[in-house]
Design a protein around this nucleic acid. Structure first.
Lengths: 130, 130
DNA sequence: GCTTGCCTTGACGCCAACGACAAGGTTTAG
DNA sequence: CTAAACCTTGTCGTTGGCGTCAAGGCAAGC
């Protein structure tokens, strides 16, 4: 499988696949003419990467999962290092949820205040630049 | 008040103040020697900007609040444009909270699965590069 | 032989809000 | 006179995950 086919099957771009390779996440073979050649296993790897990135992981966070898959496991999250990352990310998300909830509360308070004190003093007519 | 003093009193840097000015958020006067001169009102403006950025606003979102303060209002959020931005941001935050909660749920599921299927297959000794 | 459609490496662009540094002017204290 | 401590403009770097050319090689059908 060449890079274009893998990209299509993984729902991404060739640029992305080369980027992952540059960062050590994917290791294709090379055919005689220098073309990258991927086997079926790499498709799973790429899909794992994509799924994790979608969830908010960084490329570095993804590495243990890839290694886990490469080690022959059926899923990338069953290895200790992956679990560590999962725990850490969960903690980060929880943290962020707390802060975001606080922000939400502040926005609501501010909105309430703003509406209570409505004033029309400021918004001059919007002007376009000359 | 010169830029250094304003920076200190606002808890930020001179670079930041010049950046805000470059983006039209702050308008200092100039003294004879070309130095930027700020009055007390600008301190409030800068603090408003900082507070909003901390909450996750972008510079563009902040503009209405600054204009509102400049129009003589005691707080930057009482003007219609500010209220619009507040509403939009609140909606964005709510949206993000929903997605983040979904992510959290997925992480928990994945963790559960990972722990149930614990395998030690993958983590070879970490090696340093030669 | 020529076009088409793959592939290759390389390098700049993007977005946000600045940090950091360069090279120089000004004012004040000593 | 000079050093210190301000100020000025200008430019490049940062962080991530790519998009988007650019310039060229290789394979295959006509």
């Amino acid at each position: 499988m060449l890079i274009g086919e893998l990209a299509e099957r993984a729902g991404t771009s060739t640029r992305t696949l080369r980027y992952y390779e540059a960062h050590g996440l994917v290791r294709p073979q090379r055919s005689a003419n220098g073309y990258r050649v991927y086997d079926e296993a790499e498709l799973r790897v790429v899909r794992e990467i994509r799924a994790l990135l979608d969830v908010g992981f960084g490329l570095d966070d993804v590495r243990p999962f890839v290694a886990c898959l490469r080690a022959g496991n059926s899923s990338g999250d069953v290895c200790p290092d992956s679990v560590l990352v999962l725990r850490r990310k969960l903690a980060e998300v929880d943290d962020y949820l707390v802060r975001l909830t606080a922000v939400r509360q502040q926005l609501r308070t501010q909105l309430t205040h703003a509406i209570a004190h409505r004033e029309e003093t400021c918004p001059r007519k919007r002007q376009s630049a000359p």
